[in-house]
Nucleic acid binder design. Sequence first.
DNA 1: GGCAATAGGCTTTTT
DNA 2: GCCTATTGCC
Length: 734
Amino acid sequence: MFLVKKQSNFLSDLNPDQRQAVEATEGPVLILAGAGSGKTRVLTYRIAHILDQQKAAPWEILAMTFTNKAASEMKERVKVLVGSDKNVWLGTFHSVFAKILRWDVSNIGYSSEFVIYDADDQERLVKYILADMGINPKEYAPKSIRNIISRQKNSLVSPESYASSVNSPFEKVVAQIYPLYQDRLRDNMAFDFDDLIAMPIRLFSECPDILKKYQARFRYILVDEYQDTNKAQYMLLHHLAKDSRNLCVVGDDDQSIYRWRGADLRNIIEFEKDFPNYHLFRLEQNYRSTQTILQAANSVIENNKDRKGKTLWSDREKGDPVELMEVVDEREEAQKVVESIKEEVFKGKRSFHEFAVLYRTNAQSRSLEDGLRRSGMSYTIVGGVRFYERKEIKDVLAYLKLICNPRDSLSLKRIINFPLRGIGESTLRRIEAWALNNGLDLFRAIGEVEAIPDIPSRIKKSVVAFHVMMQKYIALKDKITPNELVRTVVDETGLLTMYKGDTSVEGQGRAENIREFLSAVGEYVDSSESPSLSGFLEEVSLVTDIDSWNDKSNAITLMTLHCAKGLEFPVVFITGLEEGLFPVPRSLDEPEALEEERRLFYVGLTRAKDKIYLSWAERRRLFSDMNFRIPSRFLDEIDPDVVRKTKPARQQVRFERSRFHKRITEQFDTHPEYESFSQEDTCFQQGTRVRHEMFGNGTIVNMEGTGAKKKVVVQFENGVKKKFLLQYARFDSL
DNA sequence: GGCAATAGGCTTTTT
DNA sequence: GCCTATTGCC
């Protein structure tokens, strides 16, 4: 049977609270687990314990997380305990229900060959609908329309009931679009992210026998990060666990940071109502952080009114105080991060992978990145522009989606003239109109292009060629492996060659990304048991960058606070603690939103094991201009006993000069005729010997750009060749 | 229909 | 400040 490796004594690894939570396998269980209290441990041991007691077979256990990263970590740990994880249903909400939809969605009139639309696709779809309705997208922003529709779907509000509840003119327009949006998804045989949750609910209520099947199958259900579930997700759990009542949810109300995405803390209250006689367990012992860090975190979170209330404690040592750094601007902030890391590495004998630099918005990563790059430290950024959301990748994906599902007209429109085939807007409009009149989908219509009037024969030929090519791929789809197919598509359509020929940095980057994509397909094929194109597409739609982040490379990690949830690092920097940045301006007049910002700060603080650095800048460049800033209110909330303020000595002369230099080059930029007076032009030129604090001595071998954009290429004696923006470069003349 | 230049938006967070 | 989408010209 499913033997647990360490046999029955493995429960002795747990503390009494954890052990109780693990052993209470029967009936509803709510575990309120503070940060670092061994939440994942409890979940994995629970799975092992259920198997050990032979209460269920692996495939009768369903465990759900929010990120693939959390899911794979859990899989790993279950594997260690149980020896095999193969058949435990362990995945994200979205991936688990995508799988279920593939199997059973045909029962409610949808195709199991559906494609998945991401936020960008959703927005495009809204744009097309707006265009059809003759509505100006500048007045009615597709982005906010998409957001509203998404929120409705997450709250299980149908188009009809939404329409009857709206008031403002804007909402009335959204109410018109919402049903059309759903129709269009259906016509394209596509689901958006929200459908992956909402559709199973519909499936379960329309087909009770299918619900019964899954109810009977999933005898034990476990949910991680329960505080982040939205109403739709709650309903799903409610349906599935109604019979067995063996639902175990683990959450921390203090770490709820996805309210804006529909996460609803009321789900904890609903749980108590829908599953009476539940067992409640609290895990308050933190195994991660020092006393000091917990004291700081507790003193902050106490300012929230809306919480169930708990206080984390730890028997770890007191540790270092929280370092609060007041800096002049974002450049000095980056500099201070660099210096502190250097010091920690030197004195504390730490290595780079033990550091995380966190920030509220992705935009803040740039200045930090510049600082780290200048210092020559290796770092990885998690998040930002995601790989699978890059334009060139989405283009390849659109080809693949169309091959899988020819009715996906959104993808068809994206690629019919890319690479350019002379099939322009007017041609497309004529085909679309004809398709509509003849009741055909777009792909079928382009197959009949000969019959469509008012299209020059030269263009018709091109349309036919496109159609023939796509038909060929569709026929090939099941005959060759996904990586052979993708390579063929990329080669034959010229997607790769067009970027190869582009010698610019962006062009080369895009070509590189496509090659990386090709190897991703290869990896998928190698690692999957029954690889298929649609399987690959599904995987791609549901992964995020954090999933591929690996903590084994020795590099400093940069990411947003949201991204950091669930992770831990010995040393954590939280930067940009300024009013109007963290907390963000939009939260200032809404108490609930402000509390969520505070929880986010709490999440950040509790990521740290040994040491925390906080920073705020007196001025910061936001958007395009510099503005003066005041420290975040959250800083005042930290118990002053645990804080050490470092108001570092003001800049060295070198730094002052470089800022002066910046000021004058900006002046010269607006008055180019004075540029020749810039002293730097004579200071640094080709052949000038320079010294860089990280790379050592070198020679300027090339220069490009003017004024503030002036760049120098330096060949260093150690063989490294680097390009710097002159205004940021920190050189000493030799 | 194709291409280059420009305007405009973005910056809260993501499955 | 950067990126994209749109505009206007060829």
